[in-house]
Design a binder for these strands. Sequence first.
DNA 1: GCGGCATCGGTTATAGTATAACAATACCAT
DNA 2: ATGGTATTGTTATACTATAACCGATGCCGC
Lengths: 161, 161
Amino acid sequence: MKRNAPARDPGKHDHRKCVHTALSTAEAVCKARGEKLTPVRKRVLELVWASHRPVGAYALLDSLRADGRSAAPPTVYRALEFLLALGLVHRVESLNAYLGCAHPASDHAAQFLICRQCGTAAELEESDIATAIDRHAKRAGFAVERRTVEAMGLCAACQTA
Amino acid sequence: MKRNAPARDPGKHDHRKCVHTALSTAEAVCKARGEKLTPVRKRVLELVWASHRPVGAYALLDSLRADGRSAAPPTVYRALEFLLALGLVHRVESLNAYLGCAHPASDHAAQFLICRQCGTAAELEESDIATAIDRHAKRAGFAVERRTVEAMGLCAACQTA
DNA sequence: GCGGCATCGGTTATAGTATAACAATACCAT
DNA sequence: ATGGTATTGTTATACTATAACCGATGCCGC
Ligand SMILES: [Zn+2]
Ligand SMILES: [Zn+2]
Ligand SMILES: [Zn+2]
Ligand SMILES: [Zn+2]
């Protein structure tokens, strides 16, 4: 699938700020948890934040190599594993791709709205969606630990276009 | 991950009936839609229904080969594509695996409760979960077309054990 | 019957995603 | 400096999915 549209809110948003905020927050989260945001990890996080579109692991790998760095699949998967564990990135199951977390630090249930046209993914954090799932699960005697909620469709920009 | 527990409701449920119902319904759906449930397609559906656990495409492939049939990945992926299109099976995104649909024929929003211990997946069909997602999506101007809702955790049986 | 057309499955090859296992290095604390 | 631990490098391989081409079969109209 080709993606051709802007990352998000064309013009209305200073993406450098998104990246800067994400990296700063990551530093803080790591410090708070006694973990190290090494150069590889930081660079992978920065690459994930290059857009508001989920990125595949091998695209990240190509970018690392374009940096001139020596890298193989484990390099990027290990960095992703680290970032996932700290809640700094999410994995989008339906795309086998990774996305910077828009609300890190909090232990949150995330949901995604993924545009099939432009590839942009917006993150929601609506507790009532999680609650609705948990309620029906409980009725079935099921104890929920993790939820994957991903909606595919068209974003506002792509509907008008 | 090893799976060691019974498929579902150990003892309480006649699984042959599940399979029989699924195959009968499939025949009916195909007839109604003017599609053909060929031997390969029927066998793949039967194999998907061999348990209430999502099955990987290559496990299905191995089973086809165990039948003595000549088969390669496209064989099973084509059958799955057909069955998915008719709503007779679902794909579980977080497992890259396939599961027989418990409520075929209706055009429904499906949600899954997947036990990380025994691998069993139960299918829900709760419109209020879909509604909650759609409501928040609409607020964001997003038009939902497909929803992926998968909860991971422990089923009732595995909690007591 | 025959030629065209469409559907289905077989076959080979390849693309895309992810992890195992072990070696080398960097880092920190004694 | 020495040893221990965490991180990264490296190679190999497993797992998931699709592309492309071909042959067989069946249907339809002539
Ligand atoms: Zn941005
Ligand atoms: Zn869009
Ligand atoms: Zn059953
Ligand atoms: Zn279970």
